[in-house]
Structures are given as C-alpha cells and as structure tokens.
C-alpha cells in the first residue's frame, strides 16, 4: 500500500508544478470535453453467434441515462458484428474485439468514431493487451486455434505465438504480458476438467515466452486480471477456490486459499481492491487475503461482472433478447436496473 501513496504524492507534486508553469507562461486553457462517452461506463453486448447483433451501450458515471448502439450511431450505421468479446484501451483508442468476424475495430474511446480495423491473421480473437510498442491478441477457438498474435502500433502483423492447450485472457503488467494458457475442458462424461495449470509470460523485448508458471493446485483456471504490478488468477471447482497473486516483474507466485468459497469464477478490480463472483452468484471482496462475502446477485444467467467506482455490475444475459443489468452498491442494495442488448458480457470504465 505504500508504493501507490508515494506515487500519488509524486503525481500531486507534478500537477502543482504544471499548474504553476501554466500560470507563469501560458494563458489558462479550458479542458475541452473529449467526447460524449467520457466519464462513464461502456457496456458490451456480445450479440448472437450467427446474427450481427453485437452492440455497445453507454451510461454516464451518475447512471442518469443510457445510450445504446453507440458504435453504429457514430459510424454511419456500420454493422459491428457477432460475438463481441471484449474491449481493450490504449491511450484514446478503444479496441473492440469481435470473435466471429475475425476483426478488431479501433475507435476513439470518447467519440466511438472508427479509425482502423485489424483483420490480418486473426482467427476467432478473444482478448487483447498492450505494451507501449505492441498489441497482443489471443485467438482461441477451443479446438485447433490457440495463439497470441502480435501487432505493431500501426497494426502491422509481427508474429504469432502458439500455445498447446489454451490462449484466453491476456494482460499487460509492469512491462510483461501474461497469458492464460490453461482453462476449462470436459471429460467424456462432461465433467469439468482442467486442461492444465499454466500461465505464460511474454517478454515484450523479445516477443517470446520467457516464463511458464505452473499453478500449484488441481483446480480449473477461471479468470485472470492485472493491475500495474500484479496479475491475479482465480482457480476453482464446485467446492474449492484459490487465488494466485503473481508479481509481474519477477513472476513470483503467492497462493491465497479462498477458504469457504465454492466455484469462484470472475474477477474484478476497483480502487485497488479485488472482487470476485462465484458460480452461485455470490460476490466477495478480498480483505487482507481473506474472502469477505458481500451479497448474492440476482440473475438467471450471471454473465458479465465488474466493479466500477464502488458499484457492482452484474449482467443477467439473454441470447434471444434483451439482457438485464443490475447495478448494486457494495452492501448489495440494488442501485439501478438496466435493459441492455443481446448477451451483455462486459462493463468498462471510460
């Protein structure tokens, strides 16, 4: 906890310095709004598999209104696609990863005006991460394709790194790129099974795997998330759950047993605090490495999950019609209910 504090004070100092500079040299410039979608939450609606029904919705931070279809609206009614998997952000750009259409649409994150599209060498793209010089995209069809594609900042294809079993979540942290290279599969009688227990690290200097971390349990890797310094991985079966905290710079692993937690599935980070939701829709946060049950969300199919500015977002996904999003505060009080698009799967702070 100390380090961020030092950072914060350093940041404050810099600001002060900047302000003073401005005062002396320049006339005061008014901060112009960057676009209609600043200071709010972007909601991704996955859409159908065979119908191009992926959409993007936006709500401002005060949750006062909702705007749907912001991609089509700002791009001459362009069709976004099917199976909208995720959004990654880099600077002012948002990268919209579309699984079935094998493309990544790049838009300005505040105006949603499209600027470019990545299609080269993509095959069922899933997740995305960035380093200062490169873009990393996992491609995963749960059958033959399990790779990370690497692109330059001008979206030129550099190379692919193939993995043996999985290439799913991907995060950049403290100069390294971490890839979830194992996950869920099923045995012949359809019991859940782990493909393996690895997280792989790509060194951006060489764009090669420089470390493969094997987690020390037999549970299934469910999710991976990262902040500036740590990568968090959650593993579980129907009765047990573990959390792994990987120090990004060194690759050192700390195992945290989530005592009493069954089937932890989805991770979220908000204000330096880690949250997770289980298959039973129970939501916890982590206080001093101990799971702390908050409440149980209402959903017939809890799909998208995130915590933003102290509010917990859970989507109750429908793939034949509108999904329902329930926004709770940390005590579990329902703050707002939204009706969103088909298969709502993600919430992003913008």
């Amino acid at each position: 906890m100390k380090f961020p504090k030092i950072l914060a004070s350093a940041f404050a100092l810099t600001l002060l310095f900047n302000v003073s500079c401005r005062n002396s040299d320049d006339p005061i410039e008014e901060e112009l709004p960057k676009g209609a979608y600043e200071n709010g939450i972007i909601i991704t609606n996955e859409g159908g598999y065979s119908t191009p029904t992926s959409t993007v919705s936006f709500i401002p931070n005060d949750l006062s209104k909702q705007e749907d279809n912001i991609f089509a609206k700002n791009n001459d009614n362009a069709v976004l696609g099917n199976v909208f998997q995720t959004i990654g952000f880099k600077g002012d750009l948002a990268y919209l990863v579309l699984n079935v259409p094998n493309k990544v649409e790049i838009v300005n994150r505040y105006t949603f005006k499209k600027s470019a599209t990545i299609t080269s060498n993509l095959s069922t793209p899933r997740y995305i991460a960035f380093t200062p010089n490169h873009t990393y995209i996992t491609n995963h069809d749960f059958a033959t394709v399990k790779k990370v594609n690497i692109y330059t900042n001008t979206n030129e294809f550099v190379k692919s790194i193939n993995f043996d079993r999985y290439a799913e979540k991907i995060s950049s942290s403290n100069g390294f790129v971490y890839v979830q290279t194992d996950g869920l599969t099923y045995d012949s009688s359809y019991n859940e099974l782990a493909t393996g227990h690895t997280i792989s690290r790509i060194n951006p200097a060489t764009n090669a795997v420089d470390k493969t971390i094997t987690l020390s349990d037999e549970l299934i890797i469910r999710d991976m998330i990262a902040d500036e310094n740590f990568v968090y991985v959650v593993t579980s079966d129907y009765t047990n759950s573990n959390l792994y905290k990987i120090t990004s710079a060194t690759g050192n692993v700390e195992k945290i047993t989530l005592t009493g937690v069954a089937g932890a599935q989805k991770l979220a980070l908000d204000n330096g605090k880690l949250y997770f939701m289980t298959s039973g829709k129970k939501i916890y946060n982590l206080a001093a490495n101990t799971p702390n049950a908050l409440f149980t969300a209402t959903a017939s199919y809890a799909y998208g999950f995130n915590v933003i500015n102290g509010n917990i977002y859970v989507s109750d996904a429908s793939f034949t019609g509108d999904s329902t999003v329930r926004i709770y505060n940390l005590t579990g009080t329902l703050v707002k209910t939204l009706s969103t698009g088909i298969g709502t799967n993600g919430f992003y702070k913008n």
Binding site: P52, V79, G81, N82, V100, P101, N102, K103, T119, L122, S123, T124
Partner: peptide, 10 residues
C-alpha cells in the same frame, strides 16, 4: 456454404 457478412469471417 453458409453466408458470411464479410471476407474476414471464417
């Protein structure tokens, strides 16, 4: 053959 919306589709 099943129709796709653009050449980028599989």
């Amino acid at each position: 053959h099943y129709p796709v919306y653009s050449e980028d589709f599989t």
